[in-house]
């Protein structure tokens, strides 16, 4: 088991013909992901690293039975690409692209909710998702993720930050802890998949025994996750929130990462998480060490 994607997931790459798309598409395929198709309106019938290119997502789905799509299209085309994927019959859409306008994100999030309620969107501006040993969609370096061990204990990871997601995978691998699925939800204002979406599935996933959640300053997603954990989650949760020392009013890179009006601080998020019984580390390494304690207690 894993959440969202596993070894049966067949993936289309929208943007496979571009430099980033072809690089990561090939890496994902080498990892073992079923990379079954790419799309490009003018390059149908050609191949990229042996993967066939179709004109549209709908055609690619028809020919390959793909259920997921990974979007590497530049920001101006993302809105149309997301809708093309949903209309083409894909159930899981991963948008790696950064720099998508917030109004586009808000629009396609709500449009999907309404017209394609069964479609799960991940991103934009996210590193993707990896179920180690089964499927890797996006830009995560697969070799830094340890496969889940039979019978566990294994950890499910959900993170708002790309590089901190890799950091978490790496910390756990150093400690010889397996990962069921690692989801990078991205740092944009309107993420398609939330902490809660992932935590709910990890709680239900028999392969996952503990959950690691990596947050950052800005917004209230961590606080909402804390409320959810308190009410619904029995599995142990370890967390780290980046930006403890970030000055208020300054955007720290991510569109979402800003402390404004005293809200969205790392301290407030930490407090909310600790009140929900979550163990919170001061840095990624400390969070890794806390997870080792948790996992040792589960063995």
């Amino acid at each position: 088991m894993a959440i969202f994607v596993d070894s049966s997931t067949k993936v289309i790459y929208q943007g496979l013909t571009g430099s980033q798309g072809s690089f990561y598409g090939q890496r994902n395929a080498e990892y073992g992901t079923q990379v079954v198709a790419g799309t490009h309106p003018k390059k149908a019938g050609t191949e990229v690293n042996g993967v066939p290119i179709y004109a549209t997502v709908a055609e690619a789905v028809k020919e390959t039975g793909a259920t997921a799509s990974c979007i590497f299209i530049p920001a101006p085309g993302v809105k149309d690409a997301v809708m093309e994927a949903a209309e083409g019959g894909v159930e899981f859409i991963v948008v790696i692209t950064e720099g998508v306008p917030a109004h586009d994100e808000a629009w396609f999030y709500n449009k999907l909710q309404r017209d394609f309620p069964n479609v799960q969107l991940l991103g934009p501006n996210c590193p993707g998702i990896i179920s180690p040993g089964k499927c890797n969609i996006g830009i995560t370096a697969g070799e830094i993720a340890k496969e889940p061990s039979e019978g566990g204990p294994n950890v499910g990871i959900v993170s708002r930050s790309g590089t901190l997601t890799y950091q978490a995978l790496y910390e756990l691998k150093l400690k010889d802890i397996g990962v069921s699925t690692c989801v990078g939800i991205g740092g944009d204002p309107v993420p398609g998949t939330t902490f809660i979406d992932c935590i709910e599935r990890f709680e239900a996933d028999p392969e996952t025994q503990a959950i690691m959640m990596i947050g950052e300053i800005g917004g209230s997603a961590e606080e909402e996750a804390a409320d959810y954990i308190k009410a619904n989650v029995s599995k142990p949760v370890v967390s780290y929130v980046a930006g403890v020392t970030a000055p208020p009013g300054k955007k720290m890179g991510h569109a979402g990462a800003i402390v404004s009006g005293g809200k969205g601080t790392a301290a407030a998020k930490r407090e909310a998480l600790e009140a929900a019984g979550v163990k919170v580390g001061n840095n990624p390494t400390e969070a890794g060490a806390l997870m080792v304690e948790v996992v040792d207690g589960l063995r």
């Binding site: 901190l164 930006g243 720290m252």
Partner: peptide
């Protein structure tokens, strides 16, 4: 650092080991 989260985390860890960061700089993806 690369990535906003890692850059924030780097600023945090410099503070935590008793130093003072001069800046946050994210060189981004690619």
């Amino acid at each position: 650092a690369n990535g906003a989260g890692l850059a924030m985390s780097t600023v945090d860890i410099v503070n935590q080991v008793g130093g003072k960061p001069a800046n946050f700089l994210d060189i981004g993806g690619g």
